[in-house]
Design a protein around this nucleic acid. Structure first.
Length: 451
RNA sequence: GGCCCUAUCGUCUAACGGUUAGGACAUCGGCUUUUCAAGCCGGUAAUCGGGGUCCGAUUCCCCGUAGGGUCACCA
């Protein structure tokens, strides 16, 4: 049995999004499962639109996702071979030079190379959709090169796929219409036709092909936002495909599991809309499963420019459960903590520095400030001699008083005195993290006006 | 418009022709709670329509309809 060879062949004309990389994932998954090879080929035959930045973006995204390639090709480097095949095709009269008005400027005459279409009906078996039949007469004598040394996509791909030994062409559905052209070309050259698998499209919310214009993020943007690559991989791989055993509700799959279970037969045939809310859920699930060490490793880059960047790790670690519970991606750290240069505030700044207390916010619904301050005094008294300074300890000391006085009346001012905010975790959690000295100091500060 | 592809809750999907059509996300309600978040419990919600085949169709076939893709000297 011949070794399976798959390829991912992006053109470096812009930053690619989820749709493109899902194709890469499946091609990679299949190659790994079959113990075959995965090729990365940069298709840069469109000289006008290529750009270096897009190329770098492809390498970056692939590396982030862990889609390592076994071989790398730059299509433009293969020009001599393309020219050789073009020459052969013309010599054998399977193609011809056509002197005609240029596409962009009809007043100029130009020589392009057209394939002599045998005008037959082509049927190929798509790995996902089954047999597809197309009458190639509609295609006419299509152009395969702008000039002898400037091949068009159709010619370049089939030559490269053949030369590189690609056995399975895995690409997006939009290429179905191109496939008959490629088969015709393979036949004219007497080459073996590869297997084809055309993946359903990934759609944006308006059910149209996903594109930057529709607000789709580039894959590298997800990396920058602090999504975990395994979560993104899992989420996107699950769009249009489901590896579960019948009846199984499993949704979380590691990459080795995906490699093991990948199967074209379980591929959905219709397009799938990519919803970021689902990705957010996957990411949170993956964050929950991170070890403490991994968690801080991922958080580090986002903490660097915040006031948390200079804090003792031991203090930050006390915040870890809180952070995990409230974040969806690591860039959220920048919403949790103020920027070092003071340009932004953070939701949890009060853990790291004493907040300003707005006295008017201190009283609970329908009670007076005077009452709130008295409650604070009382709480300070209850806490002063406390030996067990843990969340439970603080709660045990304050709760009886709060219950007899009205929980909101006591707990609201207590919490606001510690956080300075109308919304925050409960005061016991905050007090436990802050420690005895700081907690007492904040309560005393807030209660000061009473004196 | 021609050609091609597709069709299960709002979204992602499960269901060898026999299920009260299942799960997840989202949404709604409740519990918990001083607030927010989380968590737990529960609810709403789908087989595009019409014909066949079959004892029996989400499932197979045909016709409609709808959506998408493609009709480049872009890939």
């Amino acid at each position: 049995m011949a070794t399976v060879v798959t390829r991912f062949a992006p053109s470096p004309t812009g930053k690619a999004h989820a749709g493109g990389y899902r194709t890469a994932m499946y091609a990679w998954l299949f190659a790994r499962q079959q113990k075959g090879e995965f090729i990365l080929r940069i298709e840069d035959t469109d000289r006008a639109r290529n750009n270096e930045e897009a190329k770098e973006d492809i390498f970056e995204a692939l590396k982030w996702l862990g889609l390592e390639h076994d071989r790398l090709y730059i299509q433009s480097a293969n020009l001599a071979r393309h020219k050789e095949i073009l020459t052969q095709l013309i010599r054998e009269d399977r193609a011809y030079v056509s002197h005609e008005p240029a596409k962009d400027d009809a007043s100029v005459m130009k020589d392009v190379i057209r394939f002599r279409n045998p005008n037959k009906i082509i049927t190929f078996t798509d790995l996902i959709r089954g047999p597809i039949t197309i009458d190639t007469t509609d295609l006419g004598d299509f152009v395969i090169a702008r000039a002898i040394d400037d091949p068009v996509y159709h010619l370049a791909v089939i030559v490269d796929d053949h030369d590189e030994g690609v056995t399975h062409v895995i690409r997006a559905e939009e290429h179905i219409a191109n496939t008959p052209r490629h088969i015709l070309l393979h036949e004219a050259l007497g080459w073996q036709i590869p297997h084809y698998a055309h993946l359903p499209l990934v759609l944006s919310e308006d059910k149209k092909k996903l594109s930057k214009r529709k607000g789709a993020l580039a894959m590298t943007d997800y990396a920058k936002l602090g999504y975990l690559s395994d979560a993104v991989f899992n989420c996107i791989a699950m769009l249009g495909w489901n590896p579960a055993d019948p009846g199984s509700d499993q949704e979380l799959f590691s990459i080795p599991e995906l490699i093991e279970r990948f199967d074209f037969n379980r591929m959905q045939k219709s397009g799938a809309i990519f919803k970021q809310e689902k990705l957010d859920w996957f990411n949170r699930e993956y964050i929950k499963r991170l070890s403490g060490e991994q968690f801080w490793e991922h958080a580090e880059p986002y903490l660097k420019d915040t006031i948390a960047g200079v804090q003792e790790r031991s203090l930050l670690e006390k915040l870890e459960p809180l952070l995990r519970e409230r974040m969806v991606k690591f860039s959220d750290m920048q919403h949790f903590f103020a920027a070092k240069d003071g340009s932004t505030e953070g939701e949890f700044d009060y853990f790291l520095m004493r907040p300003k207390i707005d006295t008017s916010k201190l009283a609970w619904k329908g009670t007076s400030l005077q009452e709130a301050l008295q409650h604070l005094e009382k709480v300070a008294g209850l806490l002063e001699g406390l030996t067990d300074w843990s969340e439970e300890g603080v709660k045990g000391a304050v709760m009886p008083y709060a219950e007899e006085t009205g929980k909101g009346n006591v707990l609201w001012p207590f919490r606001v005195a510690l956080s300075g905010r109308e919304k925050s975790p409960d005061p016991f959690t905050i007090a436990a993290i802050l420690g005895r000295g700081e907690t007492l100091a904040r309560i005393t500060d807030a209660a000061a006006p009473i004196k």
